[in-house]
Amino acid sequence: MSTQAATADRTAARRSRISPERELELYGAVLDLLREGGYDAVTMEGVAARTKCGKATLYRQWKTKSQLVTAALDKSRCPLFTGIDTGSLAGDLRAAAVAAGGRRGRDTELMEAVGQAYLRHPDLRRALRETVITPEVAALDAMLARGVERGEIAADNPAIAFVAPGFLGVLRVEGLFEDRFGDEDALPAYVEAVILPALGIAPSGP
């Protein structure tokens, strides 16, 4: 590559670089579009128009819509379960339920918005698994592994494999069962009534 061409490439890279503040603005527009109309309502053209950003800049930075949506979800995500360590498995699971219950509302809207798209778009599914779902599953699995190490549950307890899917499944469908999961106490109640007994841990008293 000639010196002139290399200089032109560096200049183009500088022009297309997005500042952290601008990136957050773009992500905010993506999330607003998701809440307003779901995954299909998000387009590169729509994000560009809403933020006065060149469409070419978006494609240079994220390549595809699924990458942009996943990046926006990941950036907005405050880890639910990472860092929870109360010293006991029951305490960890109760704390996880309280943390998840406190994140209802706008987070739930986003998950509902991408729920159907998750099933229909393999590229979005792969990206969300890697950046959003896998870290939360790993955090729950780590709680269970510590419980095994402390001797609180048996390593061969078959319920272990279903704890993370159970947690995330309830979060995913709570909007369909508003009569049963209508407030922040629903997930803690689910832990006491279902998860702890399945693991052989006595639930807390009334």
Results as ranks from 00 to 15, higher is better:
Ala145Asn: 11
Arg150Trp: 03
Glu152Met: 10
Ala142Cys: 05
Ala155His: 06
Ala154His: 11
Pro165Arg: 02
Gly151Asn: 12
Gly151Pro: 13
Ile133Leu: 15
Glu130Leu: 09
Glu130Asp: 12
Glu152Ile: 07
Asn157Pro: 12
Ala164Asp: 09
Ala161Met: 03
Ala138Ile: 06
Val148Asp: 03
Thr131Leu: 11
Ala159Glu: 04
Ala138Thr: 15
Ile153Pro: 13
Arg129Lys: 10
Thr131Ile: 05
Thr134Asp: 15
Ile153Ser: 08
Thr134Glu: 14
Val132Phe: 07
Ala155Gly: 11
Leu144Lys: 02
Gly147Lys: 00
Arg146Ile: 06
Arg129Cys: 14
Ala155Met: 04
Ala154Thr: 13
Ile160Val: 12
Glu152Phe: 07
Ile160Thr: 05
Asn157Trp: 01
Asp156Cys: 01
Pro165Tyr: 02
Ala164Pro: 15
Asn157Asp: 07
Ala145Tyr: 01
Val163Trp: 02
Ala142Val: 02
Thr134Gln: 15
Gly147Ser: 00
Ala161Ile: 03
Phe162Asp: 12
Val137Ala: 12
Arg129Met: 12
Ala145Phe: 01
Leu144Val: 13
Glu130Asn: 10
Pro135Val: 02
Pro135Cys: 13
Phe162Thr: 13
Gly151Ser: 10
Asp141Ala: 12
Gly147Asp: 08
Ala139Cys: 09
Asn157Arg: 00
Pro135Leu: 03
Val137Lys: 14
Arg146Thr: 09
Ala138Met: 13
Ala139Thr: 09
Thr131Asn: 13
Pro165Lys: 01
Val137Asn: 09
Ala164Cys: 10
Ala155Lys: 05
Ala154Pro: 09
Ile153Trp: 03
Leu140Ala: 04
Glu152Cys: 12
Glu149Asn: 12
Asn157Gln: 02
